[in-house]
Structures are given as structure tokens and as C-alpha cells.
Design a protein around this nucleic acid. Structure first.
Length: 493
RNA sequence: CGGGGCGUAGCGCAGUCCGGUAGCGCACCUGGUUUGGGACCAGGGGGUCGCAGGUUCGAAUCCUGUCACCCCGACCA
């Protein structure tokens, strides 16, 4: 089993060339400050587009609309909400000048010192500040609420250490920012969105997640409450895959966003924000992939079925193409994305391996033998099982198979997670178990001090206080003080 | 920012200790034979050895500096 992401971005054997064709590859600009950024190649972007389209549809069904806000945020904006700036200050890229000029020494160009900006601009690490600065002018009356807006954008966080997919300096994401008239409504929206993310993760990514609430110390900077979905990767580490924040009235206060209620009284609005990023692509890879490459869930695979012809000469190729053409039409009519790869410059064996690396869920191979017997060879990527089946009725069979694969991937991942989830009562046991990876359900006294102590001693963090599951009270494994319920600990990315 | 590693062809690497014609595999190009699991044979193209100084008749190799990247920490989605 490929347990680590690096297996998919770097291979030192002779197959490395083919891995360059893999979903994404970090093409790092030479000696430049864009370190830690990634280039998303077309096939990888196609996966991201699938995610976007699906999420977008889900958002819109809840009344959210898309908009776009500026990339650059005036420094003063970022500073308006104290906790927020505190949380992001250490990882911001700053624009200080607006012009270059020719180097007096004749070597290229240099920053023109005369073009210093009066106020520095921050490359957005997230857009709360600029959006709330704008909302101030959009919201006047209770009739303007709720305001439900989402933005698809790139953001930049100058992390000390980057990691492909999981923590790149620049990443693509969506960030939803909603304004509501009441605290209850805003809280309901916050929960609605984390539910939506969970549904997306499980239904489309085939990735089981645990929904929960972050502890105070893990909370988003400026939020009063953060909901999260936590997934388990194949190496037993946790990955925070999506968050939804209840921002209370913090940003409304900071940006003076008020509305006049039905009683003609001014009130501060209630806010929430929620987002998922290209990190989900990392999650997808690390949840399902194996040593043969990617394994994509059918609901997100850019190519769901690939058909590879096997022939000896041009006449043979013709014969197979004629046989396949109606099948391609039939599959497409069912909404299945098919690729018939009759490219003559690659041999069948190469294509088999190549589409396995790309994670295509179903492969059909068709040769002279099949034409004679009225059969086709079918392979499913999740189990690598191969079988020869009747060509007749194959389209219906595939439609069902794709659903099977989707379900199977989810079940497999869930079984693995459940198997790697432990209930532990003593700190000794905890320390031993955490070394082996996985989620640990344990009692905690609810204090940041204990949480910090556990983190310092074991590198494990509280991933979340689950919304569901066992709610029996107990005593903290470290301090022995009362605990309301078990929380989830894990080492994380 | 600490500790370790690394930088040589598009990719993966050898060569560095002990200075003296720039190498290998894959990829690429041409021709032929092939095609049911990553084809084979023959020929060919491609490099200011990360960058800048220094030592030397001569530097990928030695010295100094510097810039990247990777892994482990601190920080974080």
C-alpha cells in the first residue's frame, strides 16, 4: 500500500517519467520566491473542476451566489479584527512597490524606490476583511439579509514549511461568507455548510469524515466557533478537510456592518465563513491510491471509462473502432465520460499502466479475439480484478459497476478508519497507541493547558469534539478531572 | 529559524574522497520489425555540472560565500 503522498509525486525508479504525467507536479520556478507553489496539470485540474462543479451546484441549491473580490488587501483592513490579524500576520506576502525600473548597472530591472506604496497591500491569505469591508456598503436593512456569497479564488499563505497538495504557499479554494440577521440563523448556516462538506466528502470523494467542533486553540482566527470535517489518511494521520466558522459579530464590529431591523433599530449582523481547498485533491490521493497510482472515485474521475483497442494492423484497428463507436455513444448517453484511446504511438500494455496511474475506474480492452467471441475484457481499478464479459449489454453493466466502485471505495476507506480508531482510557496507553497512528477517542478535561501538554508530549492534537457518537462523561486521561465526553485525538498533516 | 540531506541532459542518477576528453538508464528524434500488461534492433540529438568568488597551467571535483529544494522539528488549512 502506498501510505504516503510522496510516493505519488516522486518515484526514483524508471517509471518516474510516467509519474510526470500524474495529476499534478510541482514545477518549481528556479531560484524564486514562488517556492512551495504547485502547477496543476490539465488532468489534475480536470479533477478540481469536477469538485468545483459539484460543490457549486450544492452551494447554489442552498441559495448561495458566486462573486469575486480583490486579490490585494490594504494592510489596515487586515488589522481591523485583532484575533484575525494575530492569526495570519506571520504568513502574509506583502506588496510594497508598484513599479520596476531599469537597473542603473544595466542588468535587468530593479524595484523603483520612488514607487513605494503609501500603504502596503497584503496578498489575501483569506478574504474576510476585504469582504466585510465591502459588505458594510451592501447591507443596510433587514431586507438585505441574509447575504449568501461564495468566492472561488486563490489565496497565499507564506508557510514556513510547505507540502505538496496539503500546504502549498498558494492554493485554490472557495470561501463562502454569509451575513445573517440573527445568531441562530448564522449558526444554522454554519452547521448547514459543514454538513454539505461532509456530504460531498462521503458521496463524491468516497472519503468518510468525522464532523465536529474545534477546540478553542484550534479555532479559526476571529471565529467564535469552528466546525470541521476530519478524514483519516492511509498512514493513520488525520487531515482537516473542510471548515465552517461561526464568526459571531466579530467582523461586523470590526467593519461596522449594521442593518436596521423591522423595529427600525440598528443591529450588528451575524457572520459565518466556510471553505475547502485544493487540499481535497491531496485527501483524495491519500485516501484511495495504491502502489499502481491513483484510484479515483467514479463520481470525480475526469475519465470514468477508458477503452483500449488491441490490434495488429490498420484493418484490425478499423474493425474494433467500428465495434466500439456505438458503445461510446451509448455510455455518453448515460452521462458516463468515456475515452476511446486508439492512439497508434503507444502499445496496449503502456496504455493499461498509464490509465492505472491516472486512476481511471474502469478499463475495457478489446481485440480480435473479443470480436470473434462477442466479448470484452473489463478491469476495475479499485480491486484490479479483470474479467472477460459479453459485449452485449456492457453499457448497463458499466453503469452499475461505477456505482459499485464508488460504494466499495467508501466502504474500504471507512473500514480502514474504523479499524484504526481506538478507545483509550489511560495516558500511558494513549502514548503507546499514538505512535501507531489512527484516531484515538479519549477523555479530556476541556482545558487548553491539558491539550497543550498532550500536544507537546505526543505531537497529537484534538482533531475535534465530534458532533455524534458516544457522549458518556468520564474523567480526563491526564488530569483525572471530569470530562463531558470523549474527543478525537490524532497526529495530523 | 535549528538538525540532517541534496543540487550534473526533460526525469532518475553515477562521477567529487584522490583535479586532467561530461557519463549511465529512461524519455526524445530517424529507420525497421512489433502490438492480449510498461516492445526490440540499429543510428542520432541534447549539458555554461545551482549561482558567485577564490586556489591552480587546468575545477563538476579543492576552498569561501550564496541561493534553492527534500526530510525531521517550531508555525499552519
Amino acid at each position: 500500500m502506498a501510505k504516503e503522498l510522496k510516493n505519488f509525486t516522486k518515484r526514483s525508479d524508471n517509471y518516474s517519467q510516467w509519474y510526470n504525467e500524474l495529476v499534478v507536479k510541482a514545477d518549481l520556478a528556479e531560484q524564486s520566491a514562488v517556492r512551495g507553489c504547485m502547477v496543476i496539470k490539465p488532468y489534475g485540474y480536470a479533477i478540481w473542476e469536477k469538485m468545483q462543479q459539484t460543490l457549486d451546484k450544492m452551494f447554489k441549491s442552498t441559495g448561495v451566489q458566486n462573486a469575486y473580490f480583490p486579490l490585494l488587501i490594504p494592510k489596515s483592513f487586515l488589522c481591523r479584527e485583532a484575533e484575525h490579524v494575530e492569526g495570519f500576520a506571520k504568513e502574509c506576502a506583502v506588496v510594497t512597490h508598484y513599479r520596476l525600473k531599469n537597473d542603473p548597472d544595466g542588468k535587468g530591472v530593479v524595484v523603483d524606490p520612488a514607487a513605494r506604496l503609501e500603504e502596503e497591500l497584503i496578498v489575501r491569505p483569506t478574504s474576510e476583511t476585504i469582504i466585510w469591508g465591502t459588505y458594510k456598503n451592501w447591507i443596510h436593512s433587514w431586507r438585505d439579509l441574509p447575504l449568501l456569497v461564495n468566492q472561488w479564488a486563490n489565496v497565499m499563505r507564506w508557510e514556513m514549511r510547505t507540502r505538496m497538495f496539503l500546504r502549498t504557499a498558494e492554493f485554490l479554494w472557495q470561501e463562502g461568507h454569509c451575513a445573517h440577521a440573527t445568531a441562530e440563523e448564522s449558526e444554522a448556516r454554519t452547521v448547514q455548510m459543514i454538513n454539505l462538506y461532509a456530504e460531498f466528502a462521503e458521496k463524491y470523494m468516497a472519503m468518510p469524515v468525522i464532523q465536529g467542533v474545534k477546540t478553542e486553540s484550534e479555532r479559526f482566527a476571529g471565529a467564535i466557533n469552528t466546525y470541521t470535517i476530519e478524514a483519516m489518511m492511509q498512514d493513520g494521520k488525520a487531515l482537516q478537510s473542510g471548515t465552517s466558522h461561526n464568526l459571531g459579530q466579530n467582523f461586523a464590529k470590526a467593519f461596522d456592518v449594521t442593518f436596521v431591523n423591522k423595529e427600525n433599530k440598528p443591529e450588528l449582523v451575524w457572520a459565518n465563513s466556510w471553505g475547502v481547498s485544493t487540499r481535497l485533491m491531496g485527501a483524495l490521493i491519500m485516501t484511495h491510491s495504491d502502489d499502481n497510482g491513483l484510484v479515483l472515485p467514479p463520481h470525480l474521475a475526469p475519465i470514468q471509462v477508458v477503452i483500449v483497442p488491441i490490434y495488429k494492423d490498420e484493418a484490425g484497428r478499423q474493425a474494433i473502432s467500428e465495434k466500439v463507436a456505438p458503445l461510446v455513444k451509448e455510455l455518453e448517453a448515460k452521462g458516463i465520460s468515456v475515452k476511446y484511446d486508439d492512439a497508434d504511438n503507444k502499445r496496449p500494455g503502456f496504455k493499461f499502466a498509464d490509465y492505472e496511474i491516472k486512476g481511471v475506474p474502469v478499463r475495457l480492452a478489446l481485440g480480435q479475439r473479443d470480436l470473434e467471441n462477442g466479448t470484452v475484457e473489463l478491469m476495475r481499478r479499485d480491486t484490479l480484478e479483470k474479467e472477460t464479459v459479453a459485449f452485449e449489454g456492457i453499457a448497463d453493466h458499466i453503469a452499475g459497476l461505477l456505482e459499485d466502485i464508488q460504494t466499495n471505495l467508501f466502504n474500504k476507506a471507512k473500514a480502514y478508519r474504523d479499524q484504526m480508531t481506538y478507545t483509550v482510557d489511560t495516558y500511558e496507553e494513549f502514548k503507546e497507541q499514538i505512535e501507531k497512528g489512527g484516531f484515538i477517542l479519549a477523555h479530556w478535561d476541556g482545558t487548553p493547558e491539558t491539550e497543550e501538554k498532550i500536544k507537546a508530549e505526543t505531537k497529537a492534537t484534538i482533531r475535534c469534539i465530534p458532533l455524534e457518537g458516544d457522549t458518556t462523561p468520564g474523567t480526563c486521561m491526564v488530569t483525572g478531572k471530569p470530562s463531558a465526553r470523549r474527543v478525537i485525538f490524532a497526529r495530523s498533516y
